[in-house]
C-alpha cells in the first residue's frame, strides 16, 4: 500500500488491530504482515504496551510442534473453531484468526501465571502451514473429530485423545504436582 495515500481512518483501524494483536502476544512478524504500519511504529507500539522490546529473531519454522501430543490437541481445537467460523460467519483474514483464537482461549484457558499452550503467533503460523498444505486435517476414525495432521498420514488416523500415549502430558511439572498432592494427602 502507498503509505502517503493512507487515510487517517485506515491507520487508526490498523493501530487498533495492532494493539489487540500485541495484547494477545503477537510477534513482530505477524504484526508486520497483518497491518500496514511501519516496523518502527510497531516496535514503538509494542514497547508502549508491554514495556519491553519485542523479541528478536525468526519465528520457529517447523510443523513438528503441531504434531506433538498436547500442542496437537490445542491446535486442533483452534482449527476446529476457525473452520466453523469460516464456514458460518462473514469473518475472514486476521479477524477470523483473532476471533477463533479468543474462543480457543476461553475453552482451554492457560493456568494462572502461565502462557497459553498455543500462542497467537503459533495459531497464525498454523493457518499458514494449512494454506500451503504443509499440514492438513485428518478425521479420527474412532471419534470422527478433525485433527491437525501431516499430509499423507491421514488414512486410518486415530487421534491422540482416543489413543492417549502412556506418557501423554507427563511433563516434569505434572509429575511434581502429583507427587506434592500425594505427600500432602499422606501427611494429613
Amino acid at each position: 500500500m502507498n503509505k502517503k495515500n493512507k487515510s487517517i481512518l485506515d491507520e487508526s483501524k490498523d493501530i487498533q488491530l495492532a494493539i489487540e494483536l500485541i495484547q494477545l502476544g503477537a510477534r513482530l512478524q505477524l504484526l508486520e504482515s497483518e497491518t500496514s504500519l511501519s516496523r518502527d511504529r510497531l516496535v514503538k507500539l509494542y514497547k508502549e504496551l508491554r514495556g519491553v522490546s519485542p523479541p528478536k529473531g525468526m519465528l520457529p519454522f517447523s510443523t513438528d510442534w503441531f504434531l506433538t501430543w498436547q500442542p496437537n490437541i490445542h491446535s486442533s481445537l483452534f482449527l476446529g473453531i476457525y473452520k466453523q467460523l469460516e464456514q458460518n460467519t462473514p469473518l475472514e483474514g486476521i479477524q477470523l484468526i483473532l476471533k477463533a483464537y479468543k474462543l480457543y482461549l476461553e475453552q482451554l484457558p492457560p493456568e494462572e501465571g502461565e502462557e497459553p499452550v498455543l500462542s497467537l503467533t503459533r495459531a497464525w503460523t498454523l493457518m499458514r502451514f494449512m494454506s500451503s498444505e504443509m499440514l492438513v486435517t485428518a478425521k479420527c476414525k474412532t471419534c470422527k473429530g478433525e485433527f491437525v495432521a501431516q499430509p499423507l498420514m491421514t488414512r486410518q488416523y486415530i487421534c491422540g485423545l482416543c489413543d492417549v500415549p502412556s506418557r501423554a502430558g507427563k511433563t516434569q511439572k505434572v509429575i511434581d504436582a502429583n507427587q506434592a498432592e500425594k505427600q500432602s494427602k499422606s501427611s494429613s
Binding site: I73, S76, L77, K83, T142, E146, V164
Partner: peptide, 29 residues
C-alpha cells in the same frame, strides 16, 4: 460411543473437555 468416551472416568478433565470441544467444533451447525 463418543458420549461414553467423553464421560469416561479414566480421562483427566483436560482431555475430556478438549475432546468434547474438538468434536463439537467438527460438527456441522
Amino acid at each position: 460411543t463418543i458420549l461414553g468416551m467423553l464421560t469416561h472416568d479414566n480421562k483427566e478433565s483436560f482431555q475430556s473437555k478438549a475432546h468434547a470441544a474438538i468434536l463439537l467444533a467438527s460438527q456441522p451447525v
